[in-house]
Write a protein that binds this DNA or RNA. Structure first.
Lengths: 201, 201
DNA sequence: CAGTATTGACAGAACGTTCAATCAAGAGTA
DNA sequence: TACTCTTGATTGAACGTTCTGTCAATACTG
């Protein structure tokens, strides 16, 4: 009851929480209302036409979680020894952010069942990150800082290398048991990647 | 009605199909009964105590999808230039198998919401694969075929490198648009990995 | 007083689950 | 062989619950 100021936002927050933990089907209008501190589920229909619309509104609200690859021109010409660890670090920072974590759970969980969402997730997020990375890696090949190779593959490899560690943070706690820290992983994995693409003398 | 022989298996198949595409909540007893070619949902309760038990039975039925890392001793001493591409190939073969695809969708989708399942998925599958890989990589370092490094990290990096390509096959078709084939990806990515860990002279 | 926010009550549908009844097939018995 | 008994498989109907969405009445606010 602390802030009855903006009910819409309050409901959106609660819906985000519920959808991300229980999924679209698992979260109910009632449970969302409860989480939002609202007495009656009917109020939700005062702000949103139906459950589906509420779900889409939640997605839109949290859409602008743009990755660290915001301004491609900024790092285009900087050397990979600097840029790649920075990207990796930004990636893990994002993955450690609870809100971003919920967003990922939500998107992945629903995209598995909804092709339309998979399309959005793939194109607007993953493919975009990969494209930025491909451009950067191509540029670095041009500059002679990396040996010539297929950047479609190296871009996938680079982001992929970070995925299992991220998965350990987000939903597979069993992977944390060997105690590898994000910092250590960045150091080793990025090291392998750079060494593997070092131009021949 | 072609095979009224083993109804239990028939129901399990249908339930697997339904659970993997719609999720536990999304799949209904009715829809499962329909998919199994059974007239009445009641029949399902003749074979399984309740929906949850049916779900667990489905998981158990498809549990023994052991990865290609079955017999660790077999490839322990073989050189990484041979073994790693083979593992990657086996990985993509698994990922291309429709049944395995459904299993992955099912496990990942539900593990996001059920910590107990995440524990199983993490420990029994992912962690096990990583452990095998760690042992193999350690052994290769011992043999002087790879330079000394943190194998916890390189194991993650290796399987991770393959993940985005696999995701493109399973549920993010947008990633397929640049046309990179599995074979090409294996060649480039494994190449980077091996070059990145080549022992110094 | 006018308009919006909020509520409890409610309808209709769908859900998981239970139940009594039917059916086909085999065992036992005369 | 004929007849009953028994059992597991299968079904349609029904139960209680829960869900989404509607509605009219009330509370709040300017």
């Amino acid at each position: 009851m602390t802030e009855a100021e903006d009910r819409r936002a309050q409901i959106l927050d609660a819906a985000f929480e519920e959808f991300s933990t229980k999924g679209f089907k698992g979260a109910t209008i009632k449970s969302i209302a409860g989480a939002a501190g609202v007495q009656s589920p009917a109020l939700i229909y005062h702000y949103f036409p139906d459950k589906e619309a509420l779900f889409n509104a939640v997605l839109e609200t949290h859409a602008p979680i743009r990755s660290a690859v915001e301004d491609p021109t900024a790092f285009m010409d900087r050397p990979p020894e600097e840029v790649l660890p920075e990207i990796a670090q930004a990636y893990f920072a994002t993955v450690s952010n609870p809100v971003a974590q919920r967003m990922m759970k939500l998107m992945v969980g629903e995209a598995l069942r909804r092709p339309a969402l998979a399309e959005v997730l793939g194109r607007a997020t993953v493919a975009r990150i990969l494209d930025s990375l491909k451009k950067y890696l191509s540029r670095q090949v041009e500059l002679g800082r990396l040996r010539p190779h297929d950047v479609r593959s190296s871009a996938r490899a680079f982001v992929g290398m970070l995925v299992p560690q991220a998965a350990g943070r987000i939903f597979l706690p069993a992977l944390r048991e060997d105690g590898l820290t994000d910092k250590e992983h960045i150091e080793t994995a990025v090291g392998i990647f750079l060494e593997g693409l070092r131009p021949e003398r």
